[in-house]
Amino acid sequence: MNAIMQNKHIFKDKVVLDVGCGTGILSMFAAKAGAKHVIGVDMSTIIFKAREIVKVNGLEDKITLIQGKMEEIEMPYPKVDIIISEWMGYFLLYESMLDTVLYARDRYLNKDGLIFPDKATIFVAGIEDGDYKEEKIGFWDNVYGFDYTPLKETALSEPLVDTVEMKAVVTDPTPVLTLDLYKVQPSDLAFSCPFDLTARRDDFIHALVAWFDIEFTACHKPIRFSTGPHTKYTHWKQTVFYLKDVLTVQQGEKVECSLHNRPNEKNRRDLDIKIQYRLDTQDPNRQAEGTCLYKMC
């Protein structure tokens, strides 16, 4: 909202495309910011509600709402000056509309057009999360006296979207993916990234947590927000990947990791994620190495 309302000079008299407009709130911000015209596109029937809302707010002359797939609709303008979109999903990429935004960029955005937001970064850190891991994963070891370990495997493979407290974070955060919306291609969303996590203190690592930051660099004064554990709650929360092992780390030690992500073959909005980790120490009792596969679906 701030990115739009504080940058009226950028929006003034521009043609704006809102990809996945939902209830139309971003379109209305853009219209209020002085846009010449806003086109809101959404596949969902929510568009009918959006139309009603735009009308009761007296903006129906400024905003055209179109139901359909970005790839199939007919646009009233051949090119637009600005694309706005709230396309981010959990773990940035899960169920994300990024593919659609990129399609709209390639087809409709003017050569020197702007994208709001235009930069996204995924961060990863190690966390101590013994109690909750016990509740979510260990639970299946003994269910009312029964061995339920078959469901434990499934539980381990499903990343958990939840809030993580800052004090649970054991390592320095490390970026694993940075997207420049002007340049990124759909194929870049399958990526592999090796990275190290450096322990800030002596502690256990039960899981890795991932979150993302979003930037609007086109703004007069760049605006950014984070969905990390260190900042205000967002509906994206954070994404927790439980490891099979519990790592015991000492301050300053590095855990060598790698993260591989690719959209699922059958449903590009689902993600297949692989995390490898290795703790190499002199202490043979703390040596650990493993590979975990996850599926966000």
């Binding site: 499934t154 381990l156 073959e265 059958k266 297949d272 596969l293 996850y294």
Partner: peptide
């Protein structure tokens, strides 16, 4: 249930080519 992940450590699964499994 084709949606569920094989929880084995089998890297073959991971490397399956597009379309092979469906």
């Amino acid at each position: 249930d084709s949606e569920s992940v094989s929880s084995s450590d089998n890297d073959q699964d991971w490397l399956n080519k597009p379309g092979e499994e469906d």
